[in-house]
Simulated scan of single mutants.
Amino acid sequence: MSLSLATSLSSFTTIVTSLRASGCVFAEDEARLILSTARTPAEVTAMVDRRVAGLPLEHVLGWAEFCDLRIAVDPGVFVPRRRSEFLARQALALAAPRAVVVDLCCGSGALGAVLAASYGQLELHAADIDPAAVRCARRNLGSAGGHVHEGDLYEPLPAALRGRVGLLIANVPYVPSDEVALLPAEARVHEARVALDGGTDGLDVLRRVTAQAPRWLAPGGHLLFETSERQIPQAVATVVRDGLVPRVATCDDLEATVVIATSPN
């Protein structure tokens, strides 16, 4: 149960002032979210203190909004980005009931949760190397019957999935190693580096994903991943090298780029 309206109104101005003083650009919006999430005045105080200390708002609240879903996000876990909603929409357009779906580098499991919410009969598997992310994804996907595995990329997946995956979503890290230090502190300090660092040119993890993708995809199956605009030529070349047929989709509004790589029939 949320706080009473009277308590919320009396707290709102004080919270906004504290958040704004700490540099929060959208202090009013954040104050409303904190007040609607907290159950007691003590929780409000603790949430405001954590936000003022620099924790990402989603870690403070314990959830992030993604494609109109409330996704649980634990401290240290990669926060699903709004631009990744474009990746989710591209995956939704290719999914079908009873499809076999794998979400690699799943983080909180946000992408898998969106697919499960639209296609309840999916056989859904997700994997991440970060134990904190795996625990979080199990909370988000458990009610949908999703299976979440801990390990490096394909390594923890059941061997029986090979050649059966219709939709393989891999939201791989793609920030070049020497640019991680340039990320906002909320990401750089409070999210696992393994979820951000894509190696020297940002494509090291992607190369590992595409190299094995043909073994796991069903004929005509699709691999989808997010990348940056400047990485498109290299990403597409990687896809072609590994025998997949690429198509690039972009969204100017979200500044999002998705590569869709299809396995030949």
Rank of each mutant, 00 (worst) to 15 (best):
G120P: 07
P80D: 01
T227F: 00
G112M: 03
S143M: 10
S36W: 10
R247M: 10
F78P: 00
P156W: 06
R82K: 13
C67T: 09
V25W: 10
S18V: 01
S263F: 09
V175M: 00
L196H: 15
V79H: 04
V73N: 02
V148H: 03
V134F: 14
P173H: 08
E226K: 05
L35D: 15
A42V: 15
F66W: 05
C67D: 11
L92I: 07
E123M: 11
D252N: 08
T200V: 10
P158K: 06
L182E: 13
H125E: 13
V101D: 00
R82Q: 14
R39A: 09
C251D: 12
P97R: 04
G107C: 06
E191L: 01
D130Y: 14
R20Y: 03
P56A: 05
V258W: 04
L244K: 03
E179F: 10
A132K: 12
D197P: 10
F66E: 08
T7L: 11
R139G: 09
T40D: 13
G163P: 09
E58Q: 14
R208A: 03
E58L: 04
M47D: 13
V114Y: 07
V134C: 07
E226Y: 01
P80K: 00
V60M: 02
A211Y: 07
A213R: 04
G163D: 11
A53K: 10
T250W: 07
G151P: 07
A137Y: 05
V148C: 04
S228D: 05
T37E: 14
D201N: 05
S143N: 11
G220F: 01
R215G: 05
D253Q: 15
S11C: 11
A96F: 10
A133R: 05
L168F: 11
S22W: 05
E150C: 12
L157V: 02
Y154I: 03
V148G: 02
G112D: 04
P176F: 02
G221K: 05
L157Y: 13
I260W: 00
A127K: 14
E123T: 13
R162T: 09
A170W: 00
R215T: 10
W216S: 07
S8I: 08
I232V: 15
T238F: 03
A113W: 03
E85G: 11
E226Q: 07
N140R: 12
Y154W: 11
V194W: 09
A181N: 12
V44K: 15
A31W: 10
W216G: 08
V180M: 03
A213Y: 12
G76E: 09
W63K: 04
R39M: 05
D204I: 05
D201M: 02
R247V: 12
T250K: 15
A27L: 08
L57P: 03
G107M: 03
P131N: 08
D74N: 08
G145Y: 00
V175H: 02
A127D: 02
I15N: 03
A192K: 13
T17H: 15
T227P: 01
P184G: 09
I129F: 02
